[in-house]
Design a binder for these strands. Structure first.
Length: 422
RNA sequence: GGAGAGCUGGCUGAGUGGUCGAAAGCGCUCCCCUGCUAAGGGAGUAUACCCCUAACAGGGUAUCGAGGGUUCGAAUCCCUCGCUCUCCGCCA
């Protein structure tokens, strides 16, 4: 959610950003400004009425204390009249505030000036490419390799749970465990605090990071206990400091957490979801940063560089995309996607998304800090995957497959697996 | 799952219907005193929002776990929920 004061002072910037992000109309901006005016008017009016009745209540208290009951009685009668007016206004102000909040929830974060304006993924900018994508004809997609080696059991996963919930077996299971260890170790080396987070969150947390109301259908729910299965560790980790005021010298704070992620992925179909390309449950190591507002731009770059370093160490060719305004999402000011090359499928697979949210999430979460002047100010939040497992595994297996059909274990993972070949 | 106790400012803790945004202590900040140290004296020290202002200052409202209710008036009474602690049960 954006700051209404910022919207009031920069309506055109907000409107332009909204249209650039592909919203059909920016009318919500003017409507919000109008609602805000109405709301402030009502708040002022109520404040005055309450001030009056507070004064009278105090007078009554004094008179009662002095034993002047009749005089007190007189004032009591006067007061009960304005009571109803206050109640009426309170209901109205509550309704107007809800309407205002609803409008504010509809206004997306404003893209950074450096973000290319565009509508579709065609307009994303290739920020950089690394490595030489393999293009040999003999390379197979990972699901062929996995099935030959009996590494992934999709059918039994479907029997036990449903489509998109595979079992991993033998060396494949060990590979995933190795990747998780490798990613976490690297993150800790780079200053991230390792964290184990809850896999379910409550409604306030889902709202805090914007899953509700924007992306409610993405999550699995546990209605009886009013909980949501996390679609990413971003949700519990970002909400860790919700409703807090941090000291300035605590910033920046970096966290990393491994969790499974659950996503309903309603409406997905076809070859896009073949094999490990898209699952309902998958593993991911997530990176979350809480930073000083002035630092968030450079923090996004270092987050991106860190995520890239993982692919470099695994020696997997990738490219980094700077997402255009229309493809970047509601809550971000700027976003990079890392795509790894899948030589068996001959396509790029997204394995990380590094985003700067500015104060957008922090405002929803009421996460603030005391700045240089001792004023409370919203922190800036960023997050990125470091990395998401299944597609890394897919690209890795396809890239490290030998013509003889084995899969070599990447050097950096060998210490974790204790073998050189799967 | 059952029974009970509790939730007050950065912390400890007082406050059972009126002058309480809240005693006292600790901590912290500033000032004074004191030739180190220690001690002492004084002032200040929550958050959000609204109004006003060039700004500072100022005025107002709300907040004593959350939400609702009773009342002219609620930290104090009532209801619902959350959380913490103790005991019992169960359990990886």
């Amino acid at each position: 959610m954006l700051d209404i004061t910022f919207i009031r002072e920069n309506p055109e910037v907000v409107k332009q950003g909204m249209l650039n992000k592909g919203e059909p109309s920016a009318d919500a901006v003017d409507e919000a400004i109008k609602k805000d005016e109405e709301w402030r008017g009502l708040v002022t009016e109520i404040g005055e009425l309450r001030a009056e009745s507070n004064t009278k209540a105090k007078q009554i208290g004094q008179l009662m204390g002095q034993g002047k009951k009749e005089e007190a009685q007189k004032i009591i009668q006067e007061t009960s009249r304005s009571k109803e007016k206050i109640k009426e206004l309170e209901e109205k102000v509550g309704a107007v505030r809800r309407e205002l909040d609803e409008l504010l929830y509809k206004i997306p974060n404003v893209p950074e000036p450096s973000v290319p304006v565009g509508h579709t993924e065609e307009d994303n900018e290739i920020f950089l490419s690394w490595g030489n994508p393999a293009a040999d004809d003999w390379r197979e997609p990972h699901w062929e390799i996995a099935s030959a080696k009996n590494w992934i059991d999709f059918d039994r996963g479907s029997k036990v749970t449903g489509a998109g919930f595979p079992f991993y077996l033998g060396d494949m299971a060990r590979l995933q465990r190795a990747l998780i260890n490798f990613f976490l170790n690297e993150a800790v080396k780079n200053g991230y605090i390792e964290m184990q987070a809850p896999y379910f969150v409550n409604e306030d947390s889902a709202r805090g990071t914007g899953q509700i109301p924007d992306k409610e259908d993405m999550m699995y729910t546990i209605p009886r206990d009013e909980l949501f299965a996390i679609p990413t560790a971003e949700v519990p980790v970002s909400n860790f400091h919700r409703d807090e005021i941090l000291a300035m010298d605590e910033l920046p704070i970096y966290y990393t957490a491994y969790t499974p992620c659950w996503r309903r992925e309603a409406g997905s179909y076809g070859k896009e979801v073949r094999g490990l390309n898209r699952l309902h449950q998958f593993d991911k190591v997530e990176l979350v940063k809480f930073v000083h507002p002035e630092k968030s731009d450079e923090e996004l770059e270092s987050l991106r560089e860190y995520a890239e370093s993982l692919l470099q160490q695994l020696n997997l060719p990738y490219r980094t995309l700077l997402m255009c305004t229309g493809d970047m999402g509601f809550t971000q000011t700027k976003k990079y996607d890392l795509e790894v090359w899948s030589p068996g499928q001959k396509r790029w697979l997204e394995v990380s998304s590094c985003s700067n949210f500015g104060s957008f999430q922090a405002r929803r979460m009421q996460l603030r800090f005391k700045n240089e002047k001792g004023k409370t100010e919203m922190v800036h939040t960023l997050n990125g995957s470091g990395l998401a497992l299944p597609r890394v595994v897919a690209a890795l297996v396809e890239t490290y497959q030998t013509e003889a059909g084995d899969v070599i274990v990447p050097k950096v993972l060998q210490p974790f697996m204790g073998i050189e070949k799967m």
